[in-house]
Design a protein around this nucleic acid. Structure first.
Lengths: 107, 107
DNA sequence: GCAATCGATAACCCGCTGGCTATTGATCGA
DNA sequence: TCGATCAATAGCCAGCGGGTTATCGATTGC
């Protein structure tokens, strides 16, 4: 029932969680330990955020020994881009409709 | 202190509020009454959402007699587009760095 | 002028979620 | 083998936010 962009908006609404995702976009592949070190919150809290990000499809995890590496899944952002394009599109077509109306009124 | 895209994400995270914004994008200019009629929630709740959307810069209001018309402010979405582009950009440059490294290793 | 409508505000309630600590399971190093 | 480290889970708590009803000021039509 929830559309893809719905999950994305909800997931990225939290600043801490978004900061984690941003770091993964910048730096590419980080362990939970490394993420926790700069997140300013406890390790369980980071793990919880990573769980949410993973369920949203925004990150992938890779197990290596006793540590887990996470990386950003950039393609997951496309529903967000689609949504904004759609909104812009609605605006455009309303503008065009108005233009058409004015043209007809001219004649 | 909160960055523009932060406010946008938080504002658009709520499905009901996003639905109101979408209607304004599609239909262009609606009164609180009209929005309430299809929102499935009470008029005060709608007004509260409109207040949040307005504070985020996503809508404008226009007073006409005793009724208030709201319309979407589409330009407000640009920080969102910028943010996604930035994330994609980070990914791109990491990819390019890897490519460069591989090229150097080839030589 | 008066009743009715429109929309904003106030005051309140409740569920969700983001934080914590404690613990467990698994893996690694000595 | 045993202590230490890493990450996930469980359980708990507090604050935020989205919903409600009640009310009020402003405007309009009769």
């Amino acid at each position: 029932m929830p559309q893809p962009h719905d999950i994305l908006f909800r997931t990225l609404a939290d600043p801490t969680r978004r900061a984690i995702f941003e770091r993964l976009c910048r730096e590419g592949d980080l362990t939970v330990r490394a993420l926790t070190a700069e997140a300013g919150i406890s390790q369980p809290a980071v793990s919880k955020h990573l769980g949410v990000l993973k369920r949203a499809g925004l990150v992938r995890d890779r197990h290596e020994g006793r540590q887990t590496h996470y990386s950003a899944e950039l393609g997951a952002l496309s529903p967000l881009v689609d949504w904004t394009n759609q909104m812009t599109g609605f605006w455009q077509s309303r503008f065009n409709d108005l233009e058409d109306l004015l043209n007809r009124m001219d004649q």
